[in-house]
Amino acid sequence: MRLRRKPWVKDEIFQYTSYSVKEPREWKGKWNELFGNSHPIHAEFGTGRGRFITILAEQNPHINYIALEQKQEVLVQAVRKAVALELKNIRFILGNVNSLLEFLSPNEIERIYLNFVDPWPKKRHAKRRLTHHNYLNMYQQILQKNGSIHLKTDNEILFEFSLNEFSNHPSYQLHDISLNLYRNEENLEKYVQTEYEMKFIEQGKPIYRLEATLI
């Protein structure tokens, strides 16, 4: 369902100047300066309503987080969560993954999270999938050596596609592949879940997960 655009939402996002970054290009290569420390930086592309990234930020105060989301009606909810938790180690960007090289420099990111991204199921839309090799090439440019990409999805077709894309890319090594992450109930405590993920778990859907390391 298409979210109805509300003109006041963008204003609310950017009123939280300690959390939202209105001009991310100004901080290219200087994100640690913005955070005021030299801690590692992790990024989530497609942060949604922000449950996942805000919980991680709360649990890991010595890691900085960048959360990118293109839907402002969704992003505002993520920003509100961070404000309520008074988090100091997270910044939100209203934008698209296609522009990430405009505001992120080589070797600036230690880890990328891709959680339940749009599967773009039609073959003619394969290039839009965030694990297409064109995107993997982009991630390669901003990741540190031995940096990693963590993918979770409920879509079997996207997962199979992603496995092939990573396997065929010379710069990534796959590991920690799971075809049903929560078959082991201990993983419910080990991994932070997104809002969508919690619904899928309740419905008994398998969650697919992989990690890929830049070698």
Rank of each mutant, 00 (worst) to 15 (best):
Q15T: 06
V97G: 03
I53N: 02
D11R: 10
N137V: 05
Q59N: 14
V79E: 07
L151S: 10
L34I: 12
P121A: 04
N184D: 14
N168G: 12
R129L: 04
S105I: 06
G147H: 00
S162T: 07
L143S: 02
E189R: 13
E189P: 06
H169T: 10
H169D: 05
R5H: 09
N187D: 09
N146H: 15
S167L: 13
E12I: 14
L75N: 02
D176V: 04
I109A: 07
K22H: 07
N137M: 11
K10P: 04
Y182F: 15
L34D: 07
F103K: 00
I66D: 02
E102A: 00
F14C: 14
E69R: 03
R183S: 13
F14W: 01
F166G: 03
T54F: 05
E110T: 12
E58G: 15
P121F: 08
A43Y: 06
G147N: 02
Y172W: 14
S18R: 11
R91E: 03
F159Y: 02
Y182A: 03
I41R: 04
W120R: 05
L68Q: 08
Q141T: 12
Y65A: 08
A57K: 08
S178I: 10
S18I: 04
Q77W: 01
A78Q: 00
K71A: 00
L163F: 06
H133K: 14
G48I: 13
Y65P: 05
E26N: 09
L56A: 07
L130P: 04
V192I: 15
R49Q: 12
H42Y: 15
E186K: 14
L87W: 04
E33L: 13
L75Y: 06
Q141E: 15
R91H: 10
S171D: 15
I201L: 14
P40R: 00
Q77Y: 01
V76D: 06
H175L: 09
D176C: 10
A82C: 11
F92T: 06
F159S: 02
R80Q: 12
E102V: 04
K71I: 10
H175P: 01
P121N: 11
I112N: 03
T194C: 07
E165G: 01
S162Y: 07
R209P: 02
S99Y: 07
